[in-house]
Design a protein around this nucleic acid. Structure first.
Length: 873
RNA sequence: GCGGAUAUGGUGGAACUGGUAGACACGCAAGACUUAAAAUCUUGUUUCCGUAUGGAAGUGGGGGUUCGAUUCCCCCUAUCCGCACCA
């Protein structure tokens, strides 16, 4: 019977056409039905779908199809995160308009997505670069502006002086611009900000209301926002430029003030700038600090350096102590006040700095693990353990909490220049969200700069502010800025000649509200309130862990901002969040050390070691480590080729089959083969055991023999377990259960008398349920099998089966019997056996008798249904 | 540097609230079918000792709690992800 073959690529097209014609997956805005909104993070249209997308969207699709079968009105939409730098890069490199490039990519990727058989509502599709979308985004911005959620202030950027452009962090390589190779400078530009810090506290607190989010993501967000309780302390300065009589620092550890040995200010601090004015050495040092870059990572991993300004600061608790003030490269201007005091004994960064510049180290907190005698002189490691205060005057003997309270009171009451010298302050690591980008391919910021009226919002009636199509990329800088006419407009207020803002929005804004637009993507308003009230929040959001912080935090903020402006009613956009792992693959290099695409690699497995050679040249190939699939390492598998060869169902099945979905997934050819063979095996199994007669599954026959009963048991257990596994997103577990059911059906079918009515029934029931259970994962094969079984409707329209509870409960259990914690035998006994019965039966077991012979019983642990453990001596 | 995660056979992984470690799949081995191969089917497969009944070890490494630890606690190692203008 091996000639029964399932031609997946051909059949898949057939069923996709039928689904599309019937518009089977379009959500209806019928607000009377129970809804379920499943959304996967929409893709950037890079031009090609990759396997990461396939895995991500398969997970969402399984849920969508499952929930549909469960009777929900399911919204499962798709769109495109279509603004961004790659389009501009393509424009410069290949002389193609970013819009053309983007829409072409979208067309290509849409075809690819459709070939995967995802049950998407294509009628709601949009791209963020559609003027219908970004025009609404401008409407939102104007509302936010009016609501006081927007700010304009200076911010530091990477500046390429040759290309005359702002560089993204990823475009700065070793301190140089990626294209020009020029030394990157830091510049302060006036930019637009969303006041996300106004919501800092709420964004932390509300994490508690998100039980459907992974704890690790909530923790990451909480750490990112970084709430800390501390003090602002004002230090009097000596020998300082007159406009800076004092220096304000933020500290969470004012209790360690007696251990202070220096002050450090950021290179961006106004005091540093003032000193640099007439001291070129200071300026040079500031420039050095700036060269490190704008990322926190770069700043914190750079070797610690300081410049002694010659100024000193008076310790507010110890007026005789004058602390040297350094400009230091490890102090961030964006956090706190941009100035700190250094207490080397109890902070590692301060310790590193103190050892480098020979500054004193004073221990002010003692604990049992700290030897004060050796510590001061030699230690390179700061001691961060809590203890009791020493060398700290009025705080001596206090613990940390007491000392924090005491020092706070003291500094609050102490005056400097007529103000309290210290104030308690809650600080956040979170900074306001800078949203200005000096680029063309983004949403124009709808404001106008007028000499007379200042910054004026565009009138709502004049929206959208459309991007001009006729731009060139041959000149350095922002094309919007040097467009001949676009930016010249009349001021909306006074009518005089003025200029448009030429910055565009950060593309994170585009992705911060798209989920709400999907509720009614044709709506005249940015968000259709009624539709949003029905569909939001997203019941299941799925995407990569790399978005754990920024995208998800911005969306949470944005949703609150939209609520404030009356667009939505709820705070949290995503009720349940799932972060899936990446797809990885082995890497290969040829003899010259160049990365090699897997399709060129042939393997020899002679015995123990695996060897590889080039498919064409026969040259040996080095097998490298497993890495995330990426173009640069060429360890990618193209979904289009794959679907042409094996079909979408195999890809869908394989990408969620083995690994738990939150974990990385290793792509192997062997795994692909296994999945492909399984699709064929199912098709054979269904063909060989069906005659097109549909039996009534509501009327199960009585008096089944043992074999038939056991097939019914596994059928119903499978319904139960697969349902549960899908609900929990444990797709790999669901798949293991489907394999088990398949094995059981094969084994039954090979033995059973197929003329027997009972056998026919249990076999038909098992096959029907099997097809339904794998249906969400391999929907095309399911339709084909469904038809083969004799059903006249579509599998995709069939409701999810229920299971008979009685068949899923066993009446006996087998429990392990241990002697001294080691398993010695297994006891099979009635589920409801009492402790005494279990004990009696356990001691009758051969394995027990053998192992307790001649020994004394010390203890017996009997947990019914679980374990027997006999402790002997 | 800071923050987050991961580690179980040859491989991917399973194991509910601490209770039979290795489900399920891949691979491999042997066998059946075949002129042969592919495909398919059957059986076996953590490692070590033993012909075997059986025994010992075993969930990255080290320690601890417990009758019992992949699961809880402490320390360490390795790998991966994020760090605000990549999306």
């Amino acid at each position: 019977m091996s000639d029964i073959r399932y031609n997946a690529p051909e059949k898949e097209k057939h069923w996709q056409k039928i689904w599309a014609e019937k518009k089977l997956f379009n959500a209806t805005n019928d607000y009377s039905k129970p809804k379920y909104y499943v959304l996967e993070m929409f893709p950037y249209p890079s031009g090609n779908l990759h396997m990461g997308h396939v895995r991500n969207y398969t997970m969402g699709d399984v849920i969508a199809r499952y929930k549909r079968a469960k009777g929900f009105n399911v919204l499962h939409p798709m769109g495109w995160d279509a603004f961004g730098m790659p389009a501009e890069n393509a424009a410069q490199q290949h002389n193609v308009h970013p819009g053309e490039w983007t829409y072409q990519n979208i067309a290509n990727m849409r075809t690819q997505l459709q070939s995967m058989g995802f049950s998407l509502d294509w009628d709601r599709e949009f791209a963020t670069c559609d003027v219908e979308y970004y025009g609404k985004q401008q409407e939102l911005f104007l509302e936010f502006l009016a609501a006081g959620l927007v700010d304009r202030k200076k911010s530091r950027v990477n500046w390429d002086p040759v290309d005359n452009t702002v560089l993204a962090n990823e475009q700065v390589i070793d301190g140089k611009g990626w294209r020009s190779g020029a030394e990157v400078e830091q510049r302060d530009l006036t930019q637009w900000f969303f006041k996300i810090t106004d919501y800092a506290d709420e964004l932390i607190t509300a994490l508690d209301d998100l039980p459907g989010w992974p704890d690790k993501v909530k923790l990451m967000q909480s750490n990112w926002i970084g709430r800390s309780e501390g003090m602002e302390v004002n230090f009097e300065l000596n020998d300082t430029p007159t406009e800076f009589p004092s220096l304000k620092v933020y500290t969470t550890r004012p209790d360690t003030l007696f251990g202070a040995s220096f002050m450090a200010i950021s290179a961006g601090h106004p005091l540093a700038a003032a000193l640099a004015k007439d001291n070129p050495k200071v300026q040079k040092f500031i420039n050095e600090c700036n060269a490190i870059g704008t990322t926190e990572e770069a700043i914190e991993t750079a070797e610690k350096k300081g410049y002694d300004t010659g100024i000193t600061a008076t310790n507010p608790l110890n007026p005789r102590q004058k602390l040297p003030v350094y400009i230091a490269n490890f102090v961030l201007m964006g956090y706190g006040t941009g100035a700190v005091f250094g207490c080397p004994a109890h902070d590692q960064r301060d310790m590193d700095f103190a050892r480098k510049y020979n500054l004193p180290v004073t221990v002010v907190m003692a604990n049992d693990n700290l030897d004060i005698n050796t510590f001061n002189a030699q230690s390179l490691d700061a001691d961060t353990e809590d203890g009791l205060l020493i060398n700290s005057g009025f705080m001596d003997g206090m613990n940390k909490q007491q000392a924090l309270e005491a020092v706070a009171k003291k500094l609050e009451n102490q005056q400097l220049n007529g103000h309290p010298q210290g104030t308690r302050k809650t600080n956040y690591r979170l900074r306001d969200w800078g949203i200005s980008r000096q680029r063309y391919w983004g949403c124009p910021i709808p404001v106008v700069h007028c000499d007379q009226c200042g910054t004026v919002p565009v009138n709502k009636a004049d929206l959208p502010v459309e991007l001009p199509h006729d731009v060139t990329f041959d000149k350095p800088g922002n094309p919007l800025d040097h467009h001949p006419t676009w930016k010249h407009v009349a001021c909306p207020k006074c009518g005089k000649d003025s200029t448009r803002e030429t910055d565009t929005f950060d593309t994170f804004i585009d992705s911060s509200w798209y989920y709400a637009r999907f509720a009614d993507s044709k709506s005249e308003k940015a968000v259709n309130r009624e539709a949003a009230d029905y569909w939001l929040g997203v019941d299941q959001y799925i995407g990569g862990i790399e978005h754990a912080i920024l995208h998800l935090l911005y969306s949470r903020f944005f949703n609150r901002a939209m609520k404030k402006c009356g667009y939505t009613s709820i705070d949290e956009p995503f009720t349940n969040l799932f972060t899936q792992g990446m797809i990885t693959h082995e890497t290969y290099k040829d003899q010259d050390g160049a990365w090699l695409n897997p399709e060129f690699v042939l393997f020899d497995s002679d015995g123990e070691t695996r060897q590889a050679k080039h498919f064409e040249t026969n040259q040996p190939v080095t097998i490298g480590s497993v890495e995330k699939m990426s173009k640069s390492k060429k360890n990618v598998v193209d979904p289009t080729d794959f679907v042409t060869n094996f079909g979408a169902d195999t890809a869908r099945w394989f990408t969620i089959s083995d690994s738990p979905p939150e974990r990385d997934f290793l792509w192997t050819d062997a795994g692909v083969d296994g999945s492909y063979k399984f699709t064929q095996r199912i098709w054979r199994l269904v063909c060989e055991n069906s005659n097109g007669d549909v039996l009534d599954l509501e009327n199960a026959p009585k008096n089944l023999d043992a074999q038939a009963t056991s097939l019914r048991v596994i059928t119903h257990k499978s319904i139960k377990n697969v349902s549960q596994a899908i609900e929990n997103l444990h797709f790999n577990v669901a798949i293991a259960q489907i394999y088990m059911l398949t094995n059981a059906i094969s084994s039954f079918a090979s033995k059973a008398d197929k003329k027997d009515a009972v056998a026919q029934f249990v076999l038909f029931e098992a096959l029907t349920r099997l097809v339904q259970l794998f249906g969400p994962i391999m929907p095309h094969l399911a339709e084909e099998c469904w038809q083969q079984l004799g059903y006249k409707n579509l599998a995709a329209q069939e409701l999810w089966p229920d299971f008979e509870h009685a068949l899923t409960v066993d009446d006996t259990v087998s429990i392990a019997v241990q002697i001294n914690g080691k398993k010695r035998d297994i006891l099979t006994i009635a589920k409801d056996a009492t402790k005494d019965e279990i004990e009696k039966a356990a001691f009758a077991l051969e394995g027990v008798i053998r192992n307790i012979e001649g020994k004394t019983i010390v203890k017996k642990i009997i947990v019914p249904g679980r374990i027997v453990n006999i402790v002997v001596k």
